[in-house]
Design a protein around this nucleic acid. Sequence first.
DNA 1: CAGTTAGTTCAGAAACCTTTGAAATTCATA
DNA 2: TATGAATTTCAAAGGTTTCTGAACTAACTG
Lengths: 192, 192
Amino acid sequence: MRPDLPPPVQSFILHFGEMGSRWGINRTVGQIYALLYISPRPLCADDIVEALGVSRSNVSMSLRELQSWNLVLLRHLPDDRRDFFTTPDDVWQILRTLAEGRKRREIDPTLSFLREALMEPPANPAEAHAQAKMRDMHALIEQLTGWYDDVKTLETERLATLLALGARVTKLLETKDKIVALGSSKRDGRKT
Amino acid sequence: MRPDLPPPVQSFILHFGEMGSRWGINRTVGQIYALLYISPRPLCADDIVEALGVSRSNVSMSLRELQSWNLVLLRHLPDDRRDFFTTPDDVWQILRTLAEGRKRREIDPTLSFLREALMEPPANPAEAHAQAKMRDMHALIEQLTGWYDDVKTLETERLATLLALGARVTKLLETKDKIVALGSSKRDGRKT
DNA sequence: CAGTTAGTTCAGAAACCTTTGAAATTCATA
DNA sequence: TATGAATTTCAAAGGTTTCTGAACTAACTG
């Protein structure tokens, strides 16, 4: 890695490289992402080669991968035919992209698999038991992805509100139930 | 793999083996987990060797890994000193365990890293810019983990309610705001 | 059109991870 | 304390992924 990068930037890049394996990306991809994220301006492939000290071909392939995941954006500067790259600078946008990619790669295939498996009529008690377990798992994943599909439509501000609220949401729900109960008892005289 | 397993069970196991690489676990670990999850009774190591056709030592190491992640439970049967293994059968419990493990392995190290990096005073404008970017990322992760820490304390039923509610929570919030506003305007005659 | 620059592809080298069989360890029981 | 069943450890084989350099295509420039 280029030694003239500020030390905090160096360790940021190294950290992302190391975490890469835990996140399912490789070292170079992690490092390039970190470099682009922290860089104050878009970089071209050769900038990255110089900054990280990896091969040109590795940079080319890694950028391709990051682009396919929508984690980096391609930019062009006037009078320069090189490709420049940045990360989206809104961290909430990055979060959405990450979540979407993870769901697509890590959840959706299993969801389809379970859906298919649950279509088949069980041939014997052993298969019936297996299906029952798969049904539990399927129901859970459906519930989670349903929530996600719902929540991902929220604008950032509302999403932030929802996060800030956290577990207190259920308190709020109770309150609302009481109010509704009160309202309906006023109208038709029975509890809900 | 043992051919006398019901075909749906076989494909379930194979699916988990294949997905393993996307989930950051290896094939054997994925298969063992799937087998234990779907099995109607606890299995011992040799059962697993027979069912999956992998080596005894591989099973031993994979079980160790699953145990370290709290994804399988060790059981003992009377008058049998072999170790038997199951998965917790409440899928919500499994979800909690998975979430906790992922947070610990994939988020916490980065959170600590960022915290540390933000303690240092920036030595120049470049470092100040790097810190600003890290601060954005840190704030986002704090918000997410804060929400998670909060929500994970909910009992399953409330958690399910919250999920079912999804994005409608914010509608609810508005409603509540109106009610509060109404209440306070009744009391002190001004809008909020 | 020849030279230059940007970007891609790909075979093989290097690094890394997974799996195995054999040897070592543990531990209840004779 | 000897036996043997259950389990773990570990070096090495086997497999997969990552990375590189060299060869390639495409597009611009004089």
